[in-house]
Computed example of a mutant assay.
Amino acid sequence: MRATKEIAAVWERFDRMPMETLTKAWYASRSAGGGQRTVKQMREHHATYGTSGNCFDLALWLLDEFRQAGVEAYAIGHDMRNEKAHVAVMAFDEHRSPYLCDLGDMWIQPVLLDPKRSSFTGERIAGFFPGAQVQVSVGESSCEIIYHRAGEKRSQQVYDLRKIPQLELMQAAEASQRCFRTQLVERRVRVGQEVAHWEFSDGESFLSTSAGLFPEPKLTSLEAWCDRIYERTGIAKEVLRDALTYYAQQNG
């Protein structure tokens, strides 16, 4: 179920990048409300400030990297027309086998979506999602993922596997980049022998591993949060400071 070397080689270029909604706030503070950046801008901002972006940024960037590598790929997701919109990428190997590539949810690696599997086999697979085992169920035009976490906790997500038309994709991306409801940073981190998941979300941060969820000490100042997020991600503190300030202004 692991990706071919061609797909994996592109995916691994993003291994150290977080998924985060802070860059869009920083960009909005600099450009009269912001909006969807070009892939060229994303690369320039990453090189200068260590930024990455939200699921739309990462999907568009990943699609461009696949295109340059000669790998067929297109955008998929769910809820494109509302605030729950989430986008990922479907990439195909030389045999036309499809792989789900979801940088926005911080998957460890792409997972094969075998169209012949129409129901759960009961198999839980590890090593694909940080802090959880997953079950994959694929239908003709949709895919359901069930995440199994420590303490018998379960959650699920359903992807529409049909290609998102470019106009619809960009309209959803623009809407997402102008929504400032949630401050969120997620990153895969190595903890012992496993890949875990670190998250900052609206004034709290925690680490998720196969052993459970571990909250970090709460902080009270903007500068303290800038320090912690910088230590986890490497995003420039000036970006973090401007972004957190912008969120406070938007939601104050």
Rank of each mutant, 00 (worst) to 15 (best):
A3V: 15
A8E: 06
R16H: 13
P18Q: 03
T21Q: 11
K24M: 07
K24I: 04
G33C: 07
G34Y: 05
T38C: 01
T38I: 04
Q41K: 06
M42C: 12
A47C: 06
C55V: 05
F56G: 00
F56E: 01
W61E: 10
R67W: 14
Q68S: 13
A73Y: 11
Y74Q: 01
I76G: 01
M90G: 05
A91F: 08
F92N: 05
R96Y: 02
S97V: 13
L103K: 02
L103R: 09
W107I: 01
L113S: 09
T121I: 10
P130C: 12
V136E: 00
G139L: 09
Y147H: 02
G151R: 01
Q157Y: 13
Q171T: 06
A172P: 08
A173N: 04
E174K: 07
S176Y: 14
S176P: 07
Q177C: 12
R181L: 10
L184I: 11
V189A: 11
Q193L: 15
W198M: 07
W198N: 06
F200T: 09
F200M: 06
D202M: 03
S205Y: 00
G212S: 01
G212E: 12
T220H: 10
L222E: 12
E223I: 12
E223L: 06
A224F: 02
I229N: 03
G234L: 12
I235S: 01
I235C: 14
V239C: 00
Y247E: 09
Q249D: 11
Q250T: 04
